[in-house]
């Protein structure tokens, strides 16, 4: 699936919003590598910085610090014109296809536009590429003359995917592409993304708040907490391998119908809400300290570094060695 050099290499990337004393680090020293043909899943609660991180990777907003190498080129130092020339190699798919497509444009025009903008094709050649792409996302070529309001949510997401892929990108960032879709249609879109990855050799960053879907689609999963990486690990055996207390909490919160029924057997207590609140300030030390059942003195003063547990598995927790693998948080 991969060749030796990473397609994307991000190190110590930070994004700040607001200035002076009110400055707030939405992304705080994030590093990861992405191999060709790989899918990196990004998961974390809403507001933790997932979208901000990928926007900084694609230079849709400028980071406060750190580096992003794409095929060996430092993106953070490129000017606007050079970046525009590289745009078609990095595409993005958003959560809500209805708001990301222009309702006044036919599907054909929507797909031809990026080909024109990037000077890739026009005329007959553009029509051929558009038809090929509609076929790839399993829409009839007659879809080209129709308008967004004539399609269901799942079909619109196929159109948005076609628009992203028609320019033959290498990196595709999917920001919660199934969140606005029905359960029964979600699976179709997830399967389509897998097929397209195999067919076109795509590299994905896939953001979701649904751990089960991320695990299904991704080769590796990155768990973010409050702007920082908590853990990165292979998706195959995430449940037994997870070390970070937050990853384990996420795993225990995942409900499938069968385990949900079992959980009901235990006594019903009303748990206090307090422990669940996001920290309002960024405290010294580990950001997870307020919610962590394993926090100790150094967690409140020293920021944990991202340590390698084994190849392609890293964790940012002072106590990962002493926390036995896979036990409940």
């Amino acid at each position: 699936m991969t060749d030796a050099s990473p397609l994307v290499s991000v190190s110590d990337l930070s994004v700040e919003f607001g200035g002076g004393r009110r400055a707030f680090r939405a992304v705080d020293g994030v590093s990861f590598e992405l191999m060709r043909g790989e899918t990196l899943g990004v998961i974390g609660e809403s507001g933790c910085g997932k979208s901000t991180l990928v926007r900084a990777v694609l230079q849709l907003l400028r980071p406060a610090g750190g580096s992003v190498l794409f095929k060996g080129r430092e993106l953070t130092r490129l000017g606007g014109r050079e970046l525009r020339r590289m745009r078609h190699q990095m595409q993005m798919i958003f959560q809500d296809p209805r708001s990301s497509l222009d309702p006044r444009w036919s599907v054909g025009k929507t797909l031809r536009e990026p080909l024109a903008v990037h000077g890739i094709a026009s005329g007959r050649e553009a029509d051929r590429l558009v038809d090929e792409m509609l076929e790839a996302v399993a829409l009839p070529s007659s879809a080209g003359t129709r308008y967004p309001h004539e399609f269901s949510g799942g079909q619109l997401q196929r159109i948005a995917i076609a628009r992203a892929l028609v320019v033959k990108p290498e990196l595709v960032v999917c920001d919660e592409p199934t969140a606005s879709l029905d359960v029964s249609v979600q699976a179709q879109v997830v399967n389509l993304l897998s097929e397209l990855q195999e067919r076109f050799g795509l590299t994905y960053i896939f953001i979701s708040h649904d751990l089960a879907i991320v695990r299904h689609l991704a080769h590796r999963v990155m768990i973010m907490y409050f702007g920082r990486v908590a853990e990165i690990l292979p998706s195959e055996d995430i449940a037994p391998a997870a070390r970070h207390p937050y990853t384990r909490t996420l795993l225990s919160a995942v409900r499938d119908p069968a385990s949900a029924i079992q959980r009901r057997a235990r006594t019903l207590d009303i748990a206090p809400a307090e422990a669940l609140e996001l920290p309002l300030l960024q405290p010294d030390g580990c950001y997870y300290q307020m919610r962590c059942a394993h926090a100790e003195a150094r967690c409140r003063s020293v920021t944990p570094t991202l340590d390698e547990v084994e190849a392609s598995h890293s964790v940012a927790c002072h106590r990962w060695r002493s926390l036995a693998q896979g036990t409940a948080a």
Binding site: V185, Q186, L211, S235, P240
Partner: peptide, 15 residues
Amino acid sequence: SVPSVDGAKLARLQA
């Protein structure tokens, strides 16, 4: 159509 978080990974979801 809902994948699980443990157990073997499937090549495709049952859509």
